[in-house]
Design a protein around this nucleic acid. Sequence first.
DNA 1: TCGATTCGCCGAATCGGTTCGACTGAACAT
DNA 2: ATGTTCAGTCGAACCGATTCGGCGAATCGA
Lengths: 338, 338
Amino acid sequence: MNIGEIARRAGVSRSTVSYALTGKRPVSEQTKRRIQTVIDELGYRPNASARALKEGRTRTIGLVIPPAGKQLTDMQLGFVASVVDAAARADLDVLLSPSGGEHDRSFERVVTGRRVDGVILMEIRLEDERVTRLLQSGLPFVGIGRTGRPEDMSWVDVDYETLIARCVQHLADLGHRHVALVNRNVELVAAGYGPGHRAQAGFDRAIAERDLRGVRACCGDDAQAGQTCLRQLLAEHPELTAVATINEAAVPGMYRALADLGLTVPRDFSVIGVAAQHWAENLHPPLTAADVPASEMGARAVELLIQRIAEATTPHRHLLLAPPISLRATTGPGRARD
Amino acid sequence: MNIGEIARRAGVSRSTVSYALTGKRPVSEQTKRRIQTVIDELGYRPNASARALKEGRTRTIGLVIPPAGKQLTDMQLGFVASVVDAAARADLDVLLSPSGGEHDRSFERVVTGRRVDGVILMEIRLEDERVTRLLQSGLPFVGIGRTGRPEDMSWVDVDYETLIARCVQHLADLGHRHVALVNRNVELVAAGYGPGHRAQAGFDRAIAERDLRGVRACCGDDAQAGQTCLRQLLAEHPELTAVATINEAAVPGMYRALADLGLTVPRDFSVIGVAAQHWAENLHPPLTAADVPASEMGARAVELLIQRIAEATTPHRHLLLAPPISLRATTGPGRARD
DNA sequence: TCGATTCGCCGAATCGGTTCGACTGAACAT
DNA sequence: ATGTTCAGTCGAACCGATTCGGCGAATCGA
């Protein structure tokens, strides 16, 4: 069931079979047909390893995801799905590699064993050793997210700083004076998670510009944590009338906390954030948010990666997205309670 | 940066380097050290394609997921995460392949190009051409789920029939007389999705045994659909006092539909189902459910697959899980309303 | 009619590992 | 002294594809 067998049965040489398949040199129609017949009969497909060895490329890309233990957020899931989808469309396979913690062997295998032609990296930190590792290995890669030195690499990212600033401005325009920022989980932010820090920066800036009062909090990436977090926030700062967040997974919990306190959204309290479009739409009530086009981003990342693989010398490209805020059902005029 | 280069610098032959690395033949301590030094200096790692070509195995398994377009349910996500995790622990890489629709090329590549040593298949139908294809290809595979002829393959599955029957019995014990089954989306069930049909069978059986009145409905796999579905169900069958479901993603929507109608759970209406443990716990209110240990199932599937890869002649193994119902906050005494 | 060109195909080298058979020298037993 | 064993190493074959140089036959122009 290898190319030699096909060649024998078709009465030609192995190279002829190869050329008939790849079309890199002319082969007579008649011979081509004979070969094709044999191939169909035997259901032959070239061995991927042999081809990869000779060609020096694997037609596979690596997708490095956060450690599998933690639940992926809806946005991350959107990235994964769209990367897989776009890769399939380009006839590329996707090798999944969890990174961080105990899974560094997996990451190392992917990077170093020439198993993939390039890598897409998720959940990047401001200082990220995986990026360092990839840079020194020379393997083409594209980040969904960026480090503190973003010129060194190609990436697709969401402009959390601008978006959170816009959220705060929107709230200010509505008359809110005391607003909170609910960030991602504290470990992630402490580890230098870029979006977390950039969101803080945007928040602080907008708070200062509009002369508001702002509070910041980290919050675990699930509903339970969101509920506790907002309850505590409101206990400590009863004057709050709105919250902006980049923690989409916590939103359902925040809704519950508000409901428990008898606060109606958006009459008594406003919620706004940055979230995957699909997620924001399906929350109840639908979240007013800057809609991150997660499924487009994965596709763009794959595009960039394919380019880099084809031509490693090409200058780095960056795609910073700042989607507009979609007004849905969770923001309203801000006025002091009591 | 290949084995020959290492050999040259260490002043030994290529085979000696290979033996030093694999340990398949004795190599003197001194030589080993010299080789290791060179390797560390150059950061050498054997080329995966070359090794795969010679060894005839890739140390990679394929994971065939439902088409990426649809959102994965929490349970499916749990499967994926745990498969990736377990594979990483066994030093195996995971190649992701969407299947169905436009992605058949991807599936075909994985099966036929000797890119993987084995495959784990998700979301299996009673009649599933992918299973047929895998059987005829001879590639080892394990299903998370099973077809209508389950003896032919190895699998790990949830006993939806028994579990839904138990759910109904539980409701009957609580005094409910009119209950509904909310199934997965209609396309999936129509396509012969096993759990959908087995759940129906279990439902019908328990309904008959306990002499209840039962209604069945299919429902899209998201909150929105869950809300519409239950609203409609209650409009058409106002006598319903409980619902059992295998559609975990629809549960939040069903809660909303009940809230909209002014029904309190579990006082006025009971909800029970089969769901990923993590999901059931994090719903609000927490769902009384048979907890599917998604993260364990993926690990078991990988175990089975590793066995089959090692010894293809081994008899097929089956793992049918029927976890007990965890009583949480959504079932209570059934009594007619009005 | 002869040389140049083109077409279609073949043989051999190659990618980077693993593995088998064989060789060497030292240790050991007889 | 001689044969045996064994640890340690080497050289060459091999896995299954791609690709380059070359060769024979047909075609073409002069």
